[in-house]
Design a binder for these strands. Structure first.
Lengths: 350, 350
DNA sequence: TTGTAGGCGTTATCAA
DNA sequence: TTGATAACGCCTACAA
């Protein structure tokens, strides 16, 4: 089935069929309906290779906003962006990646705005959950499609979200904890900031499943680390002294390396468990040395790659995303599968 | 960069450049080198959309051989095949899927042969590891590219393999077991048949890490279930009586549902752990009800989808696979992440 | 050994 | 409101 055959069957020209397919109007209603009927009956859909070939001439400008790379999680996200940019370059896509240097509202605003000023066709972003940012995203989304990743803005008009279900990830951590704890005691949760939803939600998820624990556990109030390994090191060192019945350190976000180092230095890594999120290079080392017991990954590469793919399909091929929430997997890692690099995206597939 | 610009820069015609790109010969060596130099310097690579558009006229016939669907693991593999077939249909690919009705050598041979007789351009298969099959795959691979999935034939001339590193998966199961066991005792491993390498390797992997276990454990000799849930049910029921210090049932392959049912019926699911491989619909139920503690998935969908993508790129676009081993992830599941469907392939991405 | 030309299916432009 | 025509970049006969 080609657009030519449809045109022949309908007794019109290709141009008219094209106008119907893309809802461009300027077609007599009765002809429109006739063509739509034929398309439905034949199950015709445009040849993507041909569309892509033709569209690649036009060009598509996408922008992506990336939090500071001091959190090395975003290094893998960046790889996803770059890999996608590389792949879609031949389809006329240019991706402008803007790296923030600090995690403040103002900079986010200004950067995003300067990107938009360049005349973007679509935007990919992740940001702090504040009412101001929600408004701003709504404002952007009026002009161009916006895809959020890692951190969602559910009550905004963004096109869709790519990232983890953080509550469920926290529940999964709690599930692992319940399975592994051998003695009663206290659990110390660490987060970066109270206003990072991802982190507080993970703690909420963990808390929700603790009643299933076969031994008595107590979840201490979450301690902030300001996304700093130094702070986390000190926090853990202090609590190791202060809280004598500590059985587990749960890093819901921020400073996992500092926390692990502190636990290792204390010489009590065998006796106290440690759980965290994300699979950073240092985390792999800590898994192998037995300091960290479990970590839960969230496919960072895909969080960079997929938004680009989604926006390409939406803008260039006119295909709306199939889902509003593209949840990445809850990827449990421990010593023996710390090194396995699963296949995260069929990048080369045309 | 287009083939036209390269031709202009080299002072030759498009045709000559095309011959160089695809190593078709019939080009004067000095001209060949000149063109190759320009291609290298400009970083030119052919536009995939244009290639695809042109090639889709020719058509590509692929074949896939699928073990009996009585093992519902292969239902997900089949979905992968179908999804890929669907996607690549517009690029002129037709995929013939042959489902075996029993797992015997003769049938595999005859089916594969009849497929080849139809004039295939590439073949995807999974089979029992016997010397005969290795010879046969070598024979096939002389004619057309062959991709193995799930079960590899490392000493054959197949193009590449898509599937799990079974030893590492077994080690991961052992790792989980060591983390979770609370009392000493015996572990009962179940396998389908001794000559299914995947299963015995998993047990080998598990055995290798047991010395790290903080409590005393003993690994019993593996028991065969002939890939039958009925047999597995009886085996487990018997051993639950016979082996009074049983702490864990490890289903390395075959009959996991029967085994779980037996454990549930015995009323001792709380006291005895159960580990298995693959995430079948019934396994999810058993995870949620607490009968099965952990299962290790291996991305079955991808094991169907990826081989098709690989063969398309190889045959239609002339791109050799980047790796010989495409290891799927070691996908740990327990109650709280049993339901999560990660994103397994960017299928719609052009 | 090299060059030429036609077409893959779609889309954009222009003329009717 | 429609139809005709010219690309998009590559591949492949066929001609030279």
């Amino acid at each position: 089935m080609t657009i030519n055959e449809i045109a022949r069957m309908a007794g019109v020209s290709r141009g008219t069929v094209d106008r119907v397919i893309h809802n461009r109007g300027k077609v007599k209603p009765e002809i429109q309906q006739r063509i739509e009927k034929i398309i439905r009956e034949t199950g015709f859909s445009p040849n993507l290779a041909a569309s892509a070939l033709k569209r690649s001439a036009n060009g598509l400008r996408l922008g992506a906003i990336l939090p500071p790379l001091t959190n090395s999680f975003y290094v893998d996200v960046l790889k996803g962006f770059q890999s996608a940019a590389d792949h879609y370059a031949q389809y006329g896509v240019t991706l402008s990646i803007v790296q923030l240097t600090e995690l403040t509202l103002d900079e986010q605003y200004c950067t995003a705005w300067s990107l938009l000023d360049q005349g973007l066709d679509g935007l990919i972003l992740s940001a702090l959950n504040t009412p101001f940012m929600t408004d701003y995203i709504n404002h952007l989304a009026d002009e161009i499609p916006v895809v959020t990743y890692n951190t969602d803005f559910t009550n905004s008009s963004r096109l869709c979200f790519v990232g983890q279900d953080h509550i469920q990830a926290g529940r999964t951590a709690g599930n692992l904890l319940c399975n592994s704890l051998r003695r009663p005691g206290s659990i110390l949760p660490l987060i970066s900031y109270e206003n990072i939803l991802a982190h507080t939600r993970r703690v909420d998820g963990l808390r929700a499943v603790l009643p299933r624990c076969p031994v008595d556990v107590r979840l201490l109030p979450a301690v902030e680390t300001a996304e700093s390994d130094e702070v986390a090191y000190d926090v853990v060192t202090n609590w190791l002294h202060k809280q004598t019945d500590l059985t587990c350190i749960y890093v819901a976000g921020g400073g996992q390396i500092g926390a692990a180092d502190a636990l290792a230095d204390s010489g009590r890594a065998d006796e106290i468990m440690m759980f965290c999120h994300d699979l950073l290079p240092k985390t792999i080392e800590h898994l192998k040395s037995g300091v960290v017991d479990y970590t839960i990954g969230q496919q960072p590469f895909l969080q960079g790659y997929l938004p680009v793919a989604i926006l390409y399909e939406y803008l260039a091929l006119g295909q709306k995303p199939a889902k509003e929430f593209y949840y990445t997997s809850i990827d449990i890692r421990l010593r023996e599968n710390a090194d396995v690099n699963g296949i995260s995206a069929i990048t080369g597939a045309l």
